[in-house]
């Protein structure tokens, strides 16, 4: 089987005929392996155009050894994934996309030992781009750790992945 056939086969597995993107199932599928699986991301909650993913605190993901504060790298990953999935959540379908840009403002340090939750919303989809924003928090949306804004480029499934 050629690489393109394998890629097409993977797309069919993800999206059979009449496929509707289920945020909860989708999030579980997308966090089972690779970087998301390695960090231990989990599905948390969703609405019509937003989704929440959680990242439990872990000692080996700490950025400042003396304080136990989580590194910002895992928070970038969590916000990248949650914003990405918010696009599929809003559209009710899965479309291949890549991150064009992502900006993150770190409002305060994460609390050592606490799970970080990313709430991401897709607020607009155009023909070639999806616009997203999000908040990383610890259970209280009014006391965020970080804010993010970003854009995803909608791309063709050809060459999108190399399984």
């Amino acid at each position: 089987m050629s690489k393109d056939d394998k890629a097409a086969g993977l797309m069919k597995t993800i999206m059979p005929e009449g496929f509707v993107f289920d945020p909860e199932r989708g999030a579980r599928w997308f966090t089972r392996a690779g970087h998301t699986g390695f960090l231990g991301m989990e599905y948390h909650d969703h609405g019509s155009d937003w989704i929440e993913l959680a990242l439990p605190w872990r000692e080996d993901l700490v950025g400042v050894e003396e304080t136990g504060v989580l590194a910002s790298g895992p928070i970038i990953s969590l916000l990248d994934n949650a914003t990405s999935m918010s696009v599929w959540t809003r559209q009710g379908t899965f479309n291949p996309q890549v991150t064009l840009d992502l900006r993150i403002d770190y409002v305060r340090a994460a609390t050592p030992g606490k799970t970080v939750i990313a709430r991401a919303e897709c607020y607009q989809v155009r023909r070639s781009m999806a616009f997203v924003r999000g908040i990383a928090h610890e259970g209280d949306l009014t006391d965020p750790i970080a804010h993010t804004a970003g854009i995803f480029m909608l791309v063709s499934s050809e060459g999108w992945s190399k399984p």
Binding site: G34, H35, G73, S77, D80, L102, K162
Partner: peptide, 16 residues
């Protein structure tokens, strides 16, 4: 551990 979509680096790993 750094893989995003199959065959490619995850944007968050690049960010980190």
């Amino acid at each position: 551990r750094v893989q995003g979509r199959p065959g490619f680096l995850h944007g968050g790993a690049i960010g980190g």
